[in-house]
């Protein structure tokens, strides 16, 4: 159906804004406590199939085994190897903050040292010429007083030379 050209069409502007305070639950809570207090990144392993999880999982999503025993956790990183990445050049509204994304913005999948686990996080480097899968990266933490116990206690992964 085509609107008649002379009719003014009305639009309504509305913004949904919901404040959220999501429970992290456990063991994710313990993972964040360790990030905040000790700059430690932890992973764990399924006792049945050996699959590794970072952040630690309480059950294996493959075989449903319980794997949340803290004494079996292993500290991984903060160094690791970049598996793959993207660079975002187009800004958009970040729904959790309401602010526009600063571009360029890059995110990588980092295989952390210590266990075969991958953590997805921001990369410091945003120049596509300077990012290569296989390059070495290291987590950069916020200063202790600024850490809140969430994933952004890690600012990003910076490129390192070894």
């Amino acid at each position: 159906m085509k609107a008649k050209p002379q009719l003014e069409l009305i639009y309504l502007d509305m913004t949904l804004k919901m404040p959220f305070k999501w429970n992290t639950g456990e063991p994710l809570g313990e993972f964040f406590r360790e990030l905040k207090a000790n700059e430690k990144i932890y992973a764990n392993q399924c006792p049945t199939c050996g699959r590794n999880y970072c952040p630690p999982a309480n059950i294996c999503t493959r075989d449903h085994s319980r794997c949340n025993e803290k004494d079996k956790w292993v500290a991984v990183g903060p160094k690791g190897t970049l598996l793959t990445f993207f660079i975002c050049e187009q800004s958009f509204l970040i729904p959790t903050t309401g602010e526009m994304l600063e571009v360029p913005f890059s995110v990588g999948l980092v295989m952390l040292d210590g266990a075969p686990v991958v953590l997805q996080h921001c990369l410091q480097e945003t120049d596509v010429e300077k990012i290569k899968p296989g390059m070495r990266v290291e987590a950069v933490f916020k200063p202790k007083e600024e850490r809140k116990g969430n994933i952004f206690d890690i600012i990003h992964f910076k490129t390192i030379k070894e």
Binding site: W22, N23, T24, G25, E26, L28, G29, N58
Partner: peptide, 10 residues
């Protein structure tokens, strides 16, 4: 009224 020790999937 709140179950802070569990996230939704838990």
């Amino acid at each position: 009224a709140a179950k802070p020790w569990q996230h939704l999937a838990e």
